[in-house]
Amino acid sequence: MADLLANPWLRGIASSVVIATGVLTIAAWAIWFERKFAARMQNRVGPNVVGPAGLLQPLADALKLLRKEVLVPRKADAVLFRLAPALALFLTIAVVAAIPWGKDIYVADLDIGLLWVLAMSGMMLFPLWLAGWSSNNKYALFGGMRAVAQGISYEIPLLLSAMVPVVLAGSFNLREIVEYQSVHGWFAIWPPGIGVLAFVIFFATSLAEANRIPFDIPEAESELIAGVSVEYSAMSYGLFPMVEYVHTWLSSAVASVLFLGGWSGPGSSIWIIGLAWMLLKTSILFAFIYAMRWTLVRFRADQLMHFCWKWLVPVTLGLVCLAAVWVNVTAGGR
């Protein structure tokens, strides 16, 4: 067994299957969690029929969607229409590869880990835009255009705020960023001010990348029905919300790796405790996103652009400079 795992090909395939399946399973129950959570916030009961406390509801939903027929509108671009949801799922799962889930739990120890994560979640614009355009529907097209406009704008502060931990730890490798924090403390706390501001901005802009409230104008139910997914049916529809949940979950994971020390914590030298710390931090951020979802309203499109270009971009640029100064003052440069 140990011999088999020493082979890099087998190890890569096995670890990617295990970790991707794990993330998808977590995402399925994240949907259940969100529905229960929303129900509590609105003084309702939520799903409670399938399984104990409605725990098997995601499974029932998936089976229902799988049994339905996938309809392609006659005037749609059939190839791109079918490709878009699959591409979305592919890109989201590709993000998993670079994230360290525990002390030695990762698919690939990439020198460019953070850039890989940002590249794959940046590419997520394509499936949304393809879905919006290929549906040949005006609501879907508007949804796709909004997704691209928002995504391109918010990618800049996202990348810049992610550069703060990179400058502080001196590495793009997510494993090394976590190891640096396990020695020197969380970046969200230390350096004071710079870290916490970068954390808040990174978290907010990654919500914009995942199209979550208050940044969900691409799907704005009240004005665009459901934006890009309006013409979709059956499982090719089901993939869009699923991708959104996976994406949100992974955004929380990346935020906790970059700013909250990832798997580091008391007792994290034992792999299972490290994994538990990582999942705990991710889950708290994830729950916070859903508490916000049922509390806030969405931004208007012009407010969104105003906030991004006139506030977030200059502030994050300043933060990167401050982080570089901090490194030079405290560590004497690296």
Partner: peptide, 25 residues
């Protein structure tokens, strides 16, 4: 050339081609 390969994806496949397809569509 790891850095070059990821920049190829971020800059060319990501940013530039999004604008290309946007205009074409």
């Amino acid at each position: 050339a790891h850095l070059l390969s990821i920049l190829q994806i971020i800059v060319y496949a990501g940013a530039i081609m999004v604008l290309f397809t946007f205009v074409i569509m």
